[in-house]
Design a protein around this nucleic acid. Structure first.
Length: 459
DNA sequence: GTAGGGTTAG
């Protein structure tokens, strides 16, 4: 069984993922571009060769690169995979950046660094966009010193940082370190060096402050922004609304909405949209819609005001929908109010409200967050739809994350015995789960691949 | 020409 694993299972995995997106041929074509990454690893497969151990799997790079790319650039695949006969891709900063970004999204900063080194060694000079990508990848994985080193390196190589590169640093200081003084220092530095912070730079800082509960300070930044002749947009205001709603300050949120409307910034997405509903509702004395109720229930729960949320829920004339149920399930369960939740839901007319995929995922989330993996599996068994693919994929994510590969395999075997098959998208998610978990190169994925092979009748 | 920065996943 161990024989040929490296030539059968993993490529099969790639094949499934590829077939999902009609990319199989392209996936193969991607291989030459990755040869430096697979150098030293033999892809040949000798009969009797032992099962691969961690770190010996050449195709894993391809796999993770592939999944990252698919996720990132669904419409751009021709950029990576030219038509047959087209001239080969060149190693230019543009293509390197696409790959580095793909790895960054897949949570593989070391791969990003490897490509970054590779491009410099091959005399392909990184430009400001490449530097920014690398820095962002490092920041996203909390490797600040390295990001700062890359920043210095950029300057040393004569590449001028722009607003985007600085913003990565601002993001790091605001979101990761909560060192807002340093974040402001970065902005002053930008101004000194002739690179004006733009709306993204400021909005990043504002979002960080709001999230830290420093709403007043965030308003100061907004003032600073206006003084700096930089117009705020909807993204600049959204963090304030978010903060007010999460603090249960609905009136403040509504007031903000009003002032935003006066400056023509109403499109913030559903949050503002619902708040607008609330505003209009109050003005006209109209009974709020279920959607309005839902956002209020959510805000109240988030603010820990479960009793008020319950009042709204049980108030006369209110008809719950599946979204209400999903909100209640999530908020009450995570707050440990399970009996109350059952009471609330027992009053719901379940004939009219059918659970949707979000319901399944929410319940799976709740159980898995508390480490109740087996209960989550049982729950999925009890679902009438018979292992809905999306929910299985979601649970698979948690099982991979929780290192419950044995349970995952049993689940697949069980589905297999019932003649059930995962769809391509579910499979894709599974691959991403392994990659994100850093176990893309482990033996675990091989075992899973074997079951999937059986499931799809490949072997 | 294409590519990078606005924590909303898990």
């Amino acid at each position: 069984m161990a024989a040929c694993m490296s030539s059968t299972s993993l490529p099969t995995a790639i094949r499934y993922a590829a077939t999902t997106l009609d990319l199989f041929i392209d996936a193969i074509r991607l291989r030459p571009r990755t040869r430096s990454s697979v150098r030293g690893h033999s892809t040949n497969c000798n009969a009797g060769h032992a099962a691969p151990t961690d770190g010996e799997v050449p195709a894993s790079d391809l796999l993770s690169r592939f999944s990252g790319i698919m996720k990132l650039f669904p419409n751009r695949r021709r950029a990576f995979f030219p038509e047959p006969g087209a001239k080969p891709l060149e190693s230019d900063p543009f293509h390197y950046n696409l790959l580095m970004k793909a790895f960054s999204r897949a949570g593989r900063p070391d791969e990003v660094l490897r490509l970054f080194r590779e491009m410099k060694e091959s005399k392909c000079d990184p430009n400001v966009i490449c530097y920014t990508t690398v820095m962002d990848a490092l920041v996203a994985s909390n490797r600040s010193e390295e990001a700062e080193k890359v920043f210095e390196e950029m300057i040393d190589s004569g590449v001028t940082p722009d607003a985007a590169s600085f913003t990565v640093l601002v993001k790091f200081y605001s979101f990761y370190l909560r060192r807002f003084d340093s974040a402001c220092e970065i902005i002053r530095w930008m101004v000194r060096s002739g690179c004006d912070p733009d709306v993204v730079t400021y909005s990043t800082l504002i979002a960080g402050l709001c999230r830290a509960g420093m709403v007043e300070e965030a308003w100061c930044v907004l003032d600073q922004m206006l003084q700096g002749n930089c117009s705020p947009n909807a993204h600049s205001y959204a963090p304030f609304l978010q903060a007010y709603c999460s603090q249960g300050k609905i009136e403040a949120a509504i007031r903000l909405m009003e002032s935003m409307r006066s400056i023509g910034l109403c499109e913030i997405g559903k949050l503002s949209w619902v708040l607008k509903l609330v505003t209009d509702m109050i003005k006209k004395g109209i009974s709020p819609s279920t959607e309005t109720f839902n956002i209020m229930i959510r805000s109240l729960c988030k603010a820990g005001k479960f009793r008020k949320a319950k009042c709204i829920f049980t108030s006369k004339g209110f008809v719950a929908d599946i979204i209400t149920c999903n909100i209640l399930i999530h908020e009450f369960y995570m707050a440990g109010k399970i009996v109350e939740l059952q009471n609330l839901l027992s009053g719901v007319d379940m004939d009219k409200i059918r659970p949707d995929s979000i319901t399944y995922n929410t319940i799976i989330d709740c159980l898995c967050k508390k480490g109740k993996f087996l209960e989550a599996i049982d729950y999925l068994r009890s679902v009438e739809d018979g292992f809905p693919s999306e929910a299985v994929a979601h649970l698979a994510y948690w099982l991979v994350r929780g290192r419950k590969i044995g349970e995952l395999l049993s689940l697949f075997e069980e589905m297999l015995s019932q003649g059930l098959v995962l769809d391509g998208q579910a499979f894709n998610h599974l691959i991403i789960a392994f990659c994100k978990n850093g176990s893309c190169q482990s033996r675990e994925i091989y075992k899973v691949c074997l079951v999937l092979d059986k499931m799809l009748g490949v072997v």
